[in-house]
């Protein structure tokens, strides 16, 4: 008769890492669907390419590190990284772009530091930033929403564009170079147009860019689901949104002709994706409740600063990476008051 002598506690109930990652992926589904509705099936290819290369890279890295494949490869974290990267890419970006981004994220962003839990930088944003700096042109070439130009690329045409780089005849140079909302804003401002003039272009909608505003709304719904399920806590999303909104509001008050309003910033670019899905990566964020709020505010503020004063259209990736660097310091200065400690 042998008795097990395991240490207390003897009860345990928590969602597993796999379930958490699965729910994050599930919460991305509305955003993915809406993006496919407005911008075609290119995203599906990006997702598949990202997932396959992510799993391959993870397996290779584990092999090189002499680690067992399970449970790491099945924890779902690599799929989340892959999905976030795919959502950040232009839907018709060439295949090697997403694959290099994922490879960089998984191999150097994650496993070079010791795998999940030990990486100081958000792997997806690291991969994205490297590619954005290295290949700025394909990383910023977007098609307009199909509500602006009635173009609906099918599966074959999308595949052709992604794998061979050849676009169908119907797409004129004019249409292809139709910029993303934030890029159009930047180039408009550089041509000394006012905000009102810029936003009267057909690619803009009432909140942000045509199509993109609904993608953001769908992502927001998914993000709120994660909040409701307590998979993420409120401090980081609120911090990001508040940080960005305050900056946008302040600058818009100063000169509404040169600085877009709060809603435009919230619903354009990767704001919502960042607030609920990217910045909330717990591994690379600050950890105490107060720390997370500061961390979020930092990301929101930096995003605005880069968008408004920097050379890049969107600042999310750089803002996240910069705050990743600051996270250990934030942790050091935001240790919560312990029980029995004087306040």
């Amino acid at each position: 008769m042998t008795l097990l002598t395991t240490a207390s506690p003897h009860l345990h109930r928590a969602p597993s890492v796999r379930l958490i990652m699965g729910l994050v992926l599930l919460a991305l589904v509305p955003g993915i669907c809406v993006q496919v509705m407005f911008f075609g099936v290119g995203l599906i290819f990006q997702l598949l390419l990202a997932a396959c290369s992510g799993l391959l890279c993870e397996a290779a890295a584990l092999k090189l590190r002499h680690q067992p494949l399970t449970p790491t490869i099945t924890d779902g974290s690599v799929l989340v990284t892959a999905a976030l990267l795919a959502l950040s890419m232009p839907p018709l970006a060439p295949w090697w772009l997403i694959m290099s981004a994922v490879a960089f994220a998984v191999l150097l962003g994650k496993h070079a530091y010791g795998g999940l839990g030990f990486n100081p930088f958000n792997p997806a944003m690291l991969g994205y930033a490297v590619l954005l700096v290295s290949f700025p042109k394909p990383m910023t070439t977007y098609l307009p929403a199909n509500t602006v130009h009635p173009i609906n690329l099918g599966w074959m045409q999308s595949a052709q564009a992604i794998f061979t780089g050849r676009l169908p005849e119907i797409l004129t140079v004019d249409i292809v170079s139709a910029a993303s909302p934030l890029a159009a804003l930047k180039s408009g401002l550089s041509q000394r147009q006012t905000i009102d003039e810029i936003l009267s272009q057909p690619i803009f909608g009432s909140l942000g860019g045509q199509g993109w505003q609904w993608v953001s709304t769908a992502l927001l719904a998914g993000g709120l689901l994660l909040l409701a399920l307590k998979i993420i806590r409120w401090q980081i999303p609120v911090g990001v949104l508040v940080g960005l909104s305050l900056c946008a509001w302040f600058m818009h008050q100063i000169d509404p002709g040169k600085h877009a309003d709060v809603l435009f910033h919230l619903f354009s670019g990767a704001t919502i994706l960042c607030a609920f899905f990217i910045a909330t990566d717990p591994v690379t964020a600050a950890t105490s409740p107060r720390g997370r709020l500061l961390y979020g505010i930092g990301i929101g503020t930096l995003t605005y600063v880069i968008r408004d004063f920097g050379n890049y259209h969107d600042g999310v990736a750089f803002a996240v990476l910069l705050m990743n660097m600051a996270a250990p310091l934030i942790d050091k200065f935001t240790i919560p008051r312990k029980y029995g400690e004087a306040s």
Binding site: A14, V17, I20, P71, T72, D75, S77, G115, L116, G117, F118, R233, P282, V283, A285, T287, S288, P289, R292, P336
Partner: peptide
């Protein structure tokens, strides 16, 4: 089997 800490912060909560 223990998996890596993802610093989710549930323990602190």
């Amino acid at each position: 089997v223990e998996q890596a800490c993802i610093r989710c912060g549930e323990c602190a909560e």
